[in-house]
Deep mutational scan, measured.
Amino acid sequence: EETGVRVELAEEDDGEKIAIKLWLRIEDIKKLKGKYKDNEAIEFSFDLERDVPEDVAQEMVESGYVCEGDHKTMAKAIKDRVSLIKRK
């Protein structure tokens, strides 16, 4: 499903790190509610043992990086990427 958002690794995952750096990349602004630039990327750290995707997305909303209306879309994108990383 195309959401307009993609999360990718910002650094090589060696399988050892607990906290990883990720990029939340805006790919299609028409599919989102907030005002973003095409190909805008937000770099953030995610602790694989402690962080919760919904909470991280909420922090982005509170910091003004993400529109409240896009919270669920961002949280799902983060959750999907993190579950792929954890499965390795």
Score class of each variant (00 low, 15 high):
Gly4Ala: 07
Gly4Tyr: 04
Gly4Pro: 05
Val5Asn: 09
Val5Lys: 04
Val5Gln: 12
Arg6Ile: 07
Arg6Gly: 03
Arg6Val: 04
Val7Gly: 00
Val7Ala: 03
Val7Pro: 04
Leu9Pro: 06
Leu9Glu: 09
Leu9Gln: 03
Leu9Phe: 11
Leu9Cys: 07
Ala10Pro: 04
Glu11Asn: 07
Glu11Lys: 07
Glu12Leu: 09
Asp13Gln: 11
Asp13Leu: 07
Asp14Ala: 10
Asp14His: 06
Gly15Trp: 03
Gly15Tyr: 09
Gly15Met: 07
Gly15His: 08
Gly15Phe: 05
Glu16Gln: 13
Glu16Ala: 08
Lys17Leu: 05
Lys17Gly: 12
Lys17Arg: 10
Ile18Gln: 14
Ala19Trp: 08
Ala19Val: 15
Ala19Asn: 14
Leu22Phe: 10
Trp23Ala: 15
Trp23Arg: 15
Leu24Pro: 15
Leu24Thr: 09
Arg25Lys: 13
Arg25Thr: 05
Ile26Glu: 13
Ile26Leu: 08
Asp28Trp: 02
Ile29Ser: 15
Leu32Val: 07
Lys33Arg: 09
Lys33Pro: 06
Gly34Pro: 01
Tyr36Ser: 05
Lys37Trp: 00
Lys37Ala: 11
Asn39Thr: 09
Glu40Phe: 14
Glu40Arg: 11
Glu40Lys: 12
Ala41Trp: 08
Ile42Gly: 00
Ile42Phe: 11
Ile42Val: 08
Ile42Lys: 03
Glu43Tyr: 04
Glu43Pro: 14
Glu43Thr: 08
Phe44Trp: 05
Phe44Pro: 00
Ser45Lys: 15
Ser45Glu: 15
Ser45Gln: 13
Phe46Val: 01
Phe46Ser: 02
Asp47Glu: 05
Leu48Cys: 06
Leu48Glu: 02
Leu48Lys: 04
Leu48Thr: 08
Leu48His: 02
Leu48Pro: 08
Leu48Asp: 03
Glu49Lys: 08
Glu49His: 07
Arg50Val: 02
Arg50Ile: 04
Arg50Cys: 06
Arg50Asn: 14
Asp51Val: 01
Asp51Ser: 09
Asp51Pro: 01
Val52His: 14
Pro53Tyr: 01
Pro53Ile: 01
Pro53Gln: 00
Pro53Ser: 03
Pro53Ala: 12
Glu54Phe: 02
Val56Leu: 06
Ala57Pro: 00
Ala57Trp: 01
Ala57Tyr: 03
Ala57Leu: 04
Gln58Val: 00
Gln58Pro: 00
Glu59Tyr: 08
Glu59Thr: 13
Glu59Arg: 14
Met60Thr: 00
Val61Trp: 02
Val61Tyr: 01
Glu62Met: 10
Gly64His: 00
Gly64Glu: 03
Gly64Tyr: 02
Tyr65Cys: 10
Tyr65His: 11
Val66Pro: 02
Val66Leu: 13
Glu68Thr: 05
Gly69Cys: 14
Gly69Arg: 12
Gly69Glu: 15
Gly69Asp: 15
Gly69Lys: 15
His71Thr: 12
His71Ile: 15
His71Leu: 14
Lys72Leu: 12
Thr73Ser: 08
Thr73Gly: 05
Thr73Val: 14
Met74Gln: 02
Met74Asn: 00
Ala75Tyr: 00
Ala75Gln: 00
Ala75Met: 11
Lys76Pro: 01
Ile78Arg: 00
Ile78Cys: 01
Ile78Val: 04
Ile78Glu: 01
Lys79Gln: 12
Asp80Gln: 11
Asp80Tyr: 05
Arg81Leu: 02
Val82Trp: 03
Val82Cys: 02
Ser83Gly: 11
Leu84Arg: 14
Leu84Tyr: 09
Leu84Gly: 10
Ile85Pro: 05
Ile85Tyr: 11
Arg87Glu: 08
Arg87Phe: 05
Arg87Cys: 04
Arg87His: 07
